[in-house]
Every structure is written in structure tokens, then in C-alpha cells.
Design a protein around this nucleic acid. Structure first.
Lengths: 357, 357
DNA sequence: CTGAAAGCGCTTACAG
DNA sequence: CTGAAAGCGCTTACAG
């Protein structure tokens, strides 16, 4: 038939290389995987020949033969609404890789501020000889020593949802793009409110780069959208605090028409506006998605939310570790993903208990 | 450490079942995979024991041992802007499964209306003994006979982007949820235009269920958003036609403030409005994403587009076929996915040449 | 209908 | 430093 295109991958195997060079399989393997016990000359030779012949390791055969990969996951017990999403993504991908001889060990820390505890757990991971570590988000500070220990043992690390200042080899941060998230919020808000209205932004903590990025992106786009940025407020991810802050904002800012809540903590804001009957006058753009937020979207109180795809982040973390460990494929030190825009008419697609992508 | 949770998958293998029952491996295999050459009693016994012992086939080992899987892909040569996205998704997933002994054969048809050609190609697929078929979108009619032939030979089929009337076993349609897409478009438009403005909808063809669904969803939500639905127009996915239609719409509909283009063919609309300097007065919600649409979004002429995630659809198609063939896991006959909302500030995340998810 | 053997492409002790 | 052998968990001819 005209237009038929067949793509068959003629496999090049270690055996082919062995035949080509008249060397044993074990030597080939040592050379290819960087293990000791081969002369530098043999190694170079094997590597070069493999390259020329177009050899690519067959991960399927490899995982059948090698030892297990054990991924350690450090995760705070607090705020399960969000952390369970990461967990779900991680588990989903590990499940998918279970035939590849991959499993996981979970280590729980009490809350998002547990630095000393986290340090201890990192040491435990090392003792347990985990193959890699995934660190779920928290307000981490002073855990640099722990990271250094992982670094020294060449244990790969992926940090989810937050950034850390230091960049190490074999360390990757995965999070949403804060700058873009902020601009997206302002763009959506701009469709809904008139020029020269006032808007406010609520974030968790002014010390976090991610939170500041969101503000910066928002401010930039708000100039284009022609509304007035009336202030940034810290709610420390406490519902009560955001409730009180909203009260203050409503009282003090004249002509306030929009609020952008840049973390998942938007419930307090909605609660206050609902109680005071102000929901028709003020548009809320929220962040992330869980049961309560879903309800506020359906009621039309939250107009849109920027979902940070925690499930996808969790999946990516496992994928990155797997290709680093099996193919020695290095990931960039920072991966910024795009938040998804969720509105009333697509919120039901995001069934957080099951599938998310 | 407190809170440590280890999950180790103790593997149950065919050997374990063989030992348990004192039967040979080949008999176990025949029973498990539904092949001929085992007594019904043995089969039942094996199946029951496997169930009880929690046996799950190791796909890694399986794919190392079995014959190749060859997926046939039928794809129109026309409109590469969109079809290349499907192709990209399919290739990406096949590449990921290449270690699993999976490859592909592409069969090209001239355009989206080539029914006779498509029929011939289906027969060619059968001759080539493909393991499964993926059919990329077109305005198919009268290809039912071909589908029946696949059905008779138990060759799984996945149809992308469109629906077919008949439902067969082992057949799956993947496409975006038309009803929701329509409502989403209306919701976004509702943020941007005043109550009682008029809006119009452009679709490809009134005979297609998918296109009608979009209209239906749009009409439903437009009542809530309080704007007036002034008409539905067919553009047959021709740029020229949509250009002329837009002219007609502008001339005849008073107070027109919004246009929803429900297929990828929005370029003609933008062109007309841009030429006549009407882009400030009329909001456009488009569908899908390619270079030209990207540019119109950046210029602010298209306010938002509902991207139908063709790449994801392609990936899903391959995944479905793979689990059907290797685990006998049946997929539903219809899979509706959610379109992604793309606006000015997140359009750059969608780099269609590389990664899309 | 049932079973013994070889092989898929790799890795891993172990011996030389 | 180099190599021969066994094994990961399955499938596939082939023989009985």
C-alpha cells in the first residue's frame, strides 16, 4: 500500500557487542555500567563500539536481572488534603514500575515545619540504603546538612512543591511556575472586573520564593489588566488567619473587586465573604483543589482555581529517579510545571480520588 | 523510626503456582493465557489457585519472552497541524514501550474524507497481521464493514477524536467531552461580555455528534450566563468558509459580542476581525492549538482556547491497546477527556513540538 | 492433554 | 583484569 511506513527497532544487545569485540558479557557489562574491574582501554573500547552500534540498554531485561530499587519518600502528616495528592501520584507511578522491580518506603514527619525530624529521617533513609529520596513540600530550613549527606553518597533527591536555595548534582526541584501562576490569575481576574478596581493577594509566607514569584507575576499582569494592586497579605496557611485577613481587607480597601489566594488556603476567605453576603461583588481566584474548594467553585464563589497538579508532580518525581538510576539520564535541577485552570464547568473532570491527568 | 511504612511486593510467580499444584510451567501458561491444550478442569484449577495466591503477570518478563506487538496506525495526510499531535503522542508512548517489544506501522490516507481508501487500508492491516489498530480522526462514514472485519479477527481498535455510532467489543473511542467543552466556552465568555449580548457558534459539521454536543453544552451554559445565542454556523473546517461566515455574522447579528469556534478552524474568523479592526469588540473562544492560534492568543485576539490534548489522546490509545493485549484488561467503549484551558499567560507552557502534558 | 528445555537481554556472584 | 554460568519470570516450539 502506498504510504505505508514500518518502524522496526532492530535491537542491538550486549551479546552483539561481545561478538563484535570477542569479549565476555561480564566485561561488557562492567564497562557499560561504570563498575570497577575493567582496564580503561577495554572500557573505552566497549563504550565506543556500543555508541557506534547504537546500543541502548533494554530496561525490561535489566530490571529482571538487577536488585530492587527502593525509593524513600518523606512526607508530612499534616494537611492530607494536599499531601495525599502527591502520595497518589507517587504510588501510581511506582505501581506502574512494579514490574521493573521498583518499590517504596514511606517516612512520615509530623508537620510542614519539622526540620529536626526531617534531618533524622534523612539519616534513617541512608541507613536503610534507599536508592533515592523524594521530599514532599514543607517550609524547610536548615536541612542543608542532611542534603549534603545524601549528596556525598550519590543518592538522588527530588523535592516536590518547594524550592531550595542550594543546587546539587542529582537534585531536582519540581513545582509550578510561580511567575506564570500569578499572571494567569491576574489575566482571569481581568476578564471579570472593571478597569481601576482594587484587588488583593493572599500568600502563605513572604519568605518563600514560590509565593513571591506568584505576587510578582500577578503585579506584572495587573498593570496590563488595569486594576489596582492594593496589597499582599500573609496567612501562614491557617484558615482562621485568612478569615480575619479577609475581614480586614474588606474593611480597609475601597472598591475591592477581586482576591487572588496564591496557596491552597482559600477556605477562610470564601467563608467570610459568604457569611457577609459579599460573594457577588468580589471575584476570587484560588489555588489548588480539594473537596471544600470544589464546592465553592460549584457555588460560583470561587470563579477559578489554579490547580498545581500534585499528582503529576508525584509521577514526575518517580520517573526522574527511575531514568537517572537505570539509564543514568540526568534531570535539570528545576522543573517548572503549568497549573491547570479549573472553572465550574470542568471541575468534575478532576476526580482527585482517582485519576487526575 | 516512627511512622516508617515499607511496601514490598512479594512476587507470586508462575513457578509458585506450578509448585503449589505440581503441574508443569507450560500447562500453567496455557491455562493462564487462555490458550488451547488444557483440560477445562486443569484450567479452572490453575485460575482459581492463581487468584487465591494473588498472582499477577510480570509484564517485564512476559515481553522479554513473547513475540512483538505491532500496532497499525491509520492517519490522514491532510491537516498535519492537528494530526502530527496525535502522531507525537502515539510515538511517545510506543517509544516508552519499545523495551516491551512493541513497535508500530503507519498507514497514511489522503484526507479526512477518504472512506474507500480507509477500508482498503484496514484490509492491509489485517494482511500485515497487526496486533491492533489506531484510527486517527476523520469524517468517517460507511467504514462499518471494515470495522466488522477487525472485530471478527478480534483485533482491538481505538478511534481518536471522533465517535462512531456502532459499539463493538474491543473498540474504544477517545475524544474530548463535547458537552463540557461547550459549557466551558460559554462560562469563559460569560466573564468577558455583558448580559444580553449576542454570541455565535461556528462548528465543522452539523452531522457530527461531537460538534452538536459542543453546541448543546454552549447553549445550556449561555442561559446561565445570560447572553443570547444568535446562531450556529457550519464552516466544514475550511478557512475561507469561516472567513466568509464571520463577515455574514458581523453584518447580520446586532450586538454580537462573542464567537465560539468549536473546532480548530478559527484562523479565518480572526483574520476577518483583525482586518476590519473589530477585535476589541468581540471575544473569541477557540478550540485546539497550533502556531497561528498561538499567535492570535498572544495578540489578545483569541481570549482563550480549549485545547483537546491530542498528544494525551495518542498516548492513551497506545496504553489501552497495550493493557488489553498484555493483561486482557478491557477499556470502556468511550473515554471522554477534558480539554485544557489555554490563555495568554500559559500558552507558552504548551510547546507542541516537544512535551505537552 | 501434559511436560522438559531453550531462550528473551540483562546482571551478579564466583572462579580463574 | 577477564570469563563461564546461573538466574530474573515468562513464552514458545517441540516431544511425549
Amino acid at each position: 500500500v502506498e504510504g505505508k511506513v514500518i518502524i522496526i527497532m532492530k535491537r542491538v544487545t550486549v551479546k552483539d557487542i561481545a561478538n563484535e569485540l570477542n569479549i565476555s558479557l561480564s566485561t561488557i557489562n562492567k564497562a557499560l555500567t561504570g563498575k570497577k574491574g575493567v582496564s580503561e582501554q577495554t572500557r573505552t573500547n566497549v563504550l565506543k563500539t556500543a555508541e557506534i552500534m547504537g546500543y541502548k540498554v533494554n530496561k525490561v531485561a535489566q530490571s529482571l536481572a538487577r536488585k530492587s530499587i527502593n525509593i524513600g519518600i518523606i512526607i508530612p502528616k499534616s494537611w492530607p488534603q494536599i499531601h495525599n495528592l502527591f502520595k497518589h501520584g507517587i504510588n501510581k507511578e511506582i505501581e506502574r514500575l512494579s514490574d521493573y522491580n521498583v518499590y517504596s518506603t514511606y517516612y512520615e514527619v509530623s508537620d510542614m515545619y519539622s526540620n529536626i525530624e526531617t534531618m533524622k529521617i534523612i539519616e534513617q533513609c541512608i541507613k536503610d540504603e534507599v536508592s533515592a529520596v523524594i521530599l514532599c513540600p514543607g517550609y524547610y530550613a536548615d536541612i542543608e546538612n542532611g542534603l549534603l549527606k545524601l549528596q556525598k553518597r550519590e543518592i538522588p533527591l527530588v523535592i516536590l512543591g518547594t524550592d531550595i536555595r542550594k543546587k546539587f548534582d542529582r537534585f531536582t526541584c519540581i513545582r509550578t511556575d510561580g511567575l506564570r501562576s500569578g499572571s494567569m490569575a491576574a489575566e482571569l481576574l481581568g476578564w471579570q472586573i472593571k478597569d481601576n478596581s482594587s484587588v488583593a493577594v493572599l500568600i502563605g509566607n513572604k519568605d518563600l520564593k514560590d509565593h513571591n514569584d506568584k505576587v510578582e507575576g500577578f503585579v506584572k499582569e495587573s498593570k496590563i489588566q488595569k486594576f489596582i494592586m492594593a496589597g499582599v497579605f500573609e496567612h501562614q496557611d491557617e484558615i482562621d488567619l485568612s478569615y480575619i485577613l479577609t475581614k480586614k481587607i474588606i474593611r480597609e480597601i475601597t472598591n475591592i473587586k477581586g482576591i487572588y489566594v496564591a496557596t491552597g488556603n482559600s477556605i477562610g476567605v470564601c467563608k467570610y465573604l459568604e457569611e457577609k453576603g459579599l460573594t457577588d461583588n468580589i471575584s476570587i481566584i484560588a489555588t489548588d483543589l480539594y473537596k471544600e474548594i470544589k464546592q465553592y467553585i460549584k457555588k460560583g464563589i470561587i470563579k477559578a482555581t489554579l490547580f498545581q497538579n500534585q499528582v503529576t508532580q508525584g509521577e514526575k518525581a518517580v520517573k526522574i529517579i527511575f531514568s537517572l538510576l537505570t539509564e543514568n539520564k540526568k534531570a535539570p535541577s528545576e522543573i517548572l510545571i503549568s497549573p491547570s485552570i479549573i472553572i465550574k464547568n470542568n471541575v468534575d473532570f478532576f476526580d482527585l480520588d482517582n485519576e487526575n491527568s
